[in-house]
Amino acid sequence: MITIDALKEFGANTEEGLTRCMGMEEFYIQLVGTMLNDANFEKLDSAVEAGDAVAAFEAAHALKGALGNLSLTPICDPVSEITERLRGQTEMPDLSDVMPKYKEALERLKAL
C-alpha cells in the first residue's frame, strides 16, 4: 500500500509534494495513484521503441511536469534527463543508460 512513509522511503520529497497538496496526505497518495496510470508512460516506451524522437519528447516532457509536481524525485530525475536528450531531436538519441533507471524506479513505485 502507498503511504507517506513508503513514499519517503522510496525517495520522494514528500514534504514538498504535500505542500502542493495543501498538506492533505490522502489526496497526495491518490494523485500518486493517478500518476501511475498516466498514459504517457506507455507512450514514452512505445515511441522510444519505434524510434519516434518527437513523440517520445512530448510524452517525457508531460511526465516530467507531473512527476515534478508530486516530487517523485527517483523517477522525475531520469525522466528529466530523457526529456533533455530528446529536446529538439528528430533522430532517436542513445537512451540505453537512463531508460532502465526510470523503469526500475517506476517498478519500485508500483510495487509499494
Partner: peptide
C-alpha cells in the same frame, strides 16, 4: 491535459 497537474491546481 496532465491529470495530476490539473488536480493540484483545482485543489488550490
Amino acid at each position: 491535459d496532465e491529470r495530476v497537474n490539473l488536480e493540484l491546481l483545482k485543489i488550490v
